[in-house]
Simulated scan of single mutants.
Amino acid sequence: MSIETDIKQTTPFKSPYQRLMVNLMYTSNWVADAQTQVLKPFGLTLQQFNVLRILRGQYPNPVKVSDITERMLDKMSNASRLVDKLVAKQLVVRTECPSDRRAVDVVITEQGLALLKRLDRRQNEWDESQQCKLTKEEATYLSQMLDRMRS
């Protein structure tokens, strides 16, 4: 289905670039909604999931909250607040950084790792559902074009 059909637009876009921008925003929201539905039964938000994945990537090493902020997909996220919520869920632990008392180190817990393992299976199912829509080559090409657009 075209973006024009999805958003019920009857007049043409002013340019292919304007169509691209609207299509990117619409598709981004579509993917976020799909991911939200996967995470909902686990009581996680997209931003919390992002923090857990960042921490898993560095495990067993601790990560400073400021480093989490830099690596977040959503740059408007409040990493400190997200970490607080994940601590309350016992998915991460927070400790004072020994080398800088103003900094806070965060490490994913075994419970957090186990949750991500369960979510990985769900993510793989979603990935497989998308494989019938794009080939690996098309997915690689699209990703490269998006990288180029941001450069």
Rank of each mutant, 00 (worst) to 15 (best):
residue 2 S to D: 14
residue 3 I to P: 02
residue 3 I to D: 04
residue 4 E to V: 07
residue 5 T to W: 07
residue 5 T to H: 12
residue 5 T to I: 10
residue 7 I to D: 04
residue 7 I to P: 06
residue 7 I to E: 06
residue 9 Q to K: 12
residue 9 Q to F: 08
residue 9 Q to A: 12
residue 10 T to D: 13
residue 11 T to P: 11
residue 13 F to H: 06
residue 13 F to G: 05
residue 14 K to Q: 15
residue 14 K to I: 14
residue 19 R to C: 07
residue 19 R to Q: 14
residue 20 L to D: 01
residue 20 L to Q: 09
residue 20 L to F: 07
residue 21 M to I: 14
residue 22 V to M: 01
residue 22 V to D: 01
residue 23 N to M: 12
residue 24 L to K: 04
residue 24 L to G: 00
residue 25 M to N: 09
residue 26 Y to M: 04
residue 26 Y to S: 08
residue 26 Y to W: 12
residue 28 S to E: 11
residue 31 V to T: 03
residue 33 D to V: 10
residue 34 A to S: 09
residue 35 Q to V: 12
residue 36 T to Q: 08
residue 37 Q to D: 12
residue 37 Q to G: 07
residue 41 P to D: 02
residue 42 F to G: 05
residue 42 F to D: 10
residue 42 F to L: 09
residue 43 G to P: 01
residue 45 T to L: 05
residue 46 L to Y: 00
residue 46 L to R: 03
residue 46 L to V: 03
residue 47 Q to R: 06
residue 49 F to Q: 04
residue 49 F to N: 10
residue 50 N to A: 04
residue 50 N to W: 00
residue 51 V to H: 03
residue 52 L to R: 02
residue 54 I to D: 00
residue 55 L to E: 01
residue 55 L to V: 02
residue 59 Y to H: 12
residue 60 P to C: 04
residue 62 P to W: 00
residue 65 V to P: 02
residue 66 S to N: 09
residue 67 D to R: 11
residue 67 D to A: 10
residue 68 I to C: 00
residue 69 T to L: 05
residue 72 M to V: 05
residue 73 L to R: 10
residue 73 L to N: 10
residue 74 D to G: 01
residue 76 M to S: 14
residue 77 S to L: 04
residue 79 A to W: 03
residue 80 S to T: 07
residue 80 S to K: 06
residue 82 L to I: 06
residue 83 V to P: 00
residue 85 K to F: 06
residue 87 V to P: 00
residue 88 A to Y: 08
residue 88 A to D: 13
residue 89 K to S: 06
residue 90 Q to T: 07
residue 90 Q to Y: 12
residue 90 Q to M: 09
residue 90 Q to D: 11
residue 91 L to W: 02
residue 92 V to E: 00
residue 92 V to N: 02
residue 93 V to M: 03
residue 96 E to N: 08
residue 97 C to V: 05
residue 103 A to W: 02
residue 103 A to Q: 05
residue 107 V to C: 03
residue 107 V to H: 00
residue 108 I to N: 01
residue 109 T to P: 07
residue 110 E to I: 10
residue 110 E to W: 10
residue 110 E to P: 05
residue 111 Q to V: 13
residue 111 Q to I: 12
residue 113 L to M: 14
residue 115 L to H: 05
residue 115 L to Y: 12
residue 115 L to T: 04
residue 116 L to H: 05
residue 117 K to Q: 15
residue 125 E to R: 13
residue 125 E to N: 15
residue 128 E to T: 15
residue 128 E to H: 15
residue 130 Q to W: 14
residue 133 K to S: 15
residue 134 L to R: 08
residue 135 T to P: 06
residue 136 K to I: 12
residue 137 E to D: 13
residue 138 E to D: 12
residue 140 T to G: 13
residue 141 Y to C: 06
residue 141 Y to D: 09
residue 143 S to Q: 13
residue 143 S to A: 12
residue 143 S to P: 06
residue 144 Q to R: 11
residue 146 L to N: 08
residue 146 L to M: 15
residue 147 D to H: 10
residue 148 R to T: 10
residue 148 R to S: 13
residue 148 R to Q: 13
residue 149 M to I: 06
residue 151 S to H: 11
